[in-house]
Nucleic acid binder design. Structure first.
Lengths: 152, 152
DNA sequence: ATTTGACCTCAACCTCGGTTGAGCTGATGG
DNA sequence: CCATCAGCTCAACCGAGGTTGAGGTCAAAT
């Protein structure tokens, strides 16, 4: 039973409370997502409010948000205390928008695919599925550049 | 101007028609998604109908379908001729279902997140966002195992 | 005769989100 | 005195989906 001050946790305690393994915590620390002080023997000592950040990382993982995006919103979070309810609302609304975007992208693909199921042409020059950002039509007949933008 | 028989293409021709770089074609071949005969100097000679398979791969990429899934549906495709319209319909309906599943998963997350924006507890033992497959409640009070299944 | 172009193979490298293992220290208990 | 545990660092590895580069071959053009 470590006689830690009540607002600091060892990595073992953090692991028990969050379920996040040490290797991942180390990793997050290296990425600057979380941070710790160090104890007498160089052990990590986490301020208790770090649990909140870790919760946010766990949520982000569920939402398939990349850690770099997490890092970005984390720059707007206080480092010396737990994020407030308002902080959470801001962050979660950002992430909700990302979800919405993803959903809309999928809905668009569903539309396209539905249209193309009946067609089935898969023509390299005419098929919408094969030519996403299709500016096709302004360039007259003939072969059309695929996949990459025209060179400048 | 290579005097190829009209139903066979060099890799260069395939690249020009599909926009897929040689490195990717090599890769797809190693993965068993496409195949080629070899010419006098060991060059790949692609049967023309291979363009259809490549189209399917391109579509799958747009849909964020993994190559292993593509490989799976490809086992149901003819290897000696182009897939028929029916083949395409079967495959595209499978992929459409995958899109639907993904959309529904996102919709669920959106729901959860919306619920949690107001709450903001992010409690390690009570928060739905943090405890996905929550069997919570059958196990009484006290700390609840996170992330991993209970040991057997 | 040689240079160019198209093609080949094989091995190494990249990102992302970590995991695994080797080898170390420092505190605690018997 | 020594074992054990908790923690540390650093380097290597995984899988997905390729890309990049070195070095070799072959045929056509100069």
């Amino acid at each position: 039973m470590p006689a830690r001050p009540d607002d600091h946790l060892t990595i073992g305690e953090v692991i028990r409370r969050t379920g996040v393994p040490a290797s991942a915590l180390h990793f997050y620390e290296r990425k600057g997502l979380i941070f710790s002080e160090r104890g007498s023997g160089n052990q990590r000592i986490f301020p208790r409010h770090m649990l909140r950040r870790i919760s946010l990382i766990i949520v982000a993982k569920r939402l398939d948000i990349r850690l770099s995006d997490v890092a970005e919103v984390f720059t707007t979070l206080p480092t010396d205390r737990a994020p407030t309810h308002k902080d959470w609302q801001r962050v979660s609304r950002i992430w909700k928008k990302q979800l919405e975007e993803r959903r809309r992208a999928i809905e668009n693909l569903e539309q396209e695919l539905t249209g193309c199921i009946g067609c089935g042409c898969l023509s390299m020059k005419a098929c919408l599925l094969l030519n996403p950002d299709d500016a096709l039509g302004g360039r007259g007949p003939g072969p059309v550049r695929l996949q990459s933008a025209p060179p400048p």
